[in-house]
Design a protein around this nucleic acid. Structure first.
Lengths: 237, 237
DNA sequence: CTATTTATAATTGTATTATAAATAGTACAT
DNA sequence: ATGTACTATTTATAATACAATTATAAATAG
């Protein structure tokens, strides 16, 4: 149980959360009882119970007298929780998982761009502009590619001024990191990629919702298409 | 503190969660200390702390020594958590909140319909068909309008066979209930409304993703348009 | 033999008490 | 102004005891 700087409760939350998302404990499985967890991790019942409660709050487990602690069906999991998303990332996401992420991005991001063009404040536009500049400098090797890319996409969500889209920043961040697993692009961003992002920004800054939407949709469709092809090829073998 | 059938911890979670989402405790505010909460609600520190941990897990508060329990910035709130959504619903959502819900529905549902047309299993199609039938009987007064409507929309999300869209069932359910607050439609579903839903179903059943997408988008656009008009009118006064 | 009830035991729920650790704020020294 | 040590407050953890819940087994009635 790697400690870090977390307290005991949070450490146990992390361990068990990881184990569940990685399938060590499967849906319907029983986890060790409170008493066993105390013994296994050598911590008090207080800390153990608080960890169990936190995982319960995230929809991963249920805990009832005589029945013990059981992994709930995945439809109850709060998949949009930052920690839960991170436990997915820590695991070994496959191409299907990548597709699930990309399908939701395709659904979310074009509309976020549309809303950004409608509702962005000056400071929001400024944030997106800065992120784009960082991508440019990443292109020249002066900045971190992925980080700048994430900042670009999440700042558009922020500019939507819709709390639900804002909450999805976490999701997009993890989605881009999962994507990295399959494209291992430590490479710089290409001119074409940069231009596609610049198009989205321009249409947001120029307050053209539909064009911003379409520009975003276009790049998302390409990415989903690539993954669909990869899956199709894989399934043939 | 209305009890119901929950245990003490869950009752306190509910009370405090409601209070935070309804703004009784605002962002940055300090909640009463553990000791004070124990006294106020006349429960043990054990139960109190477990409630605090659960709210922490949902991103609503932070709890640190000497600093106390504070409401986190709303960007940390797990807005897609079932309980959090319900605390929003219990409150008094305004037209802006309704618009936020509808904007996300507009983003999600057309793509869910697209995916449903691609990936739905026979049993998924059957579920959507049943929901549509319930809407038909609701039209004749034999069934509950809202419940059938919710079932229709959520069963399409289920048919997407994408875990993220599936998790959004909760969101859509609450969104439709919020919508009810403003349209107080205890009225039956109109022929036109029924037909719009039937169009979406037909295109999913016929495996025509783009047409299913467009049919869904069309109805969502109308609804968002109505709310935008209502807000514009309100803001003029 | 079957169905119902009752008893048992396993597990979580709550309460209480005690001590440790973290940290905001203060006072003081540099 | 900056840093350091101290102090008081608040949460973090532990240990113990008992209550409540409930799955399973045992007893009992019909």
């Amino acid at each position: 149980m790697q400690s870090g700087h977390r307290n005991l409760t949070q450490q146990l939350v992390h361990e068990l959360g990881k184990d569940i998302l990685q399938g060590k404990y499967k849906v319907g499985d029983k986890l060790p009882s409170e008493a066993d967890l105390c013994a296994q991790y050598d911590i008090s019942r207080t800390a153990t119970r608080e960890a169990v409660k936190m995982l319960t709050a995230k929809g991963l487990i249920s805990s009832r007298p005589r029945q013990g602690i059981k992994v709930l069906d995945s439809k109850h999991w709060n998949l949009f929780d930052v920690e839960v998303l991170n436990w997915i990332l820590i695991g070994k996401p496959d191409l299907y998982m990548l597709r699930h992420f990309l399908q939701l991005r395709l659904s979310i991001e074009p509309e976020a761009a549309y809303l950004a063009a409608q509702y962005a404040k000056d400071s929001d536009i400024e944030s997106i502009k800065n992120a784009l500049a960082r991508m440019k400098s990443a292109e020249d090797g002066y900045d971190d590619t992925l980080e700048a890319d994430i900042e670009f996409h999440t700042s558009i969500l922020g500019a939507s001024n819709n709390p639900f889209f804002i909450q999805l920043k976490n999701f997009i961040q993890i989605a881009l990191q999962v994507n990295l697993r399959f494209t291992n692009r430590f490479k710089a961003i290409t001119i074409d990629e940069y231009q596609a992002h610049a198009d989205i920004f321009d249409n947001i800054a120029n307050r053209n919702p539909q064009a911003a939407h379409d520009a975003s949709l276009k790049t998302q469709k390409i990415t989903v298409g690539l993954v669909n092809d990869a899956i199709a090829e894989m399934e043939e073998k």
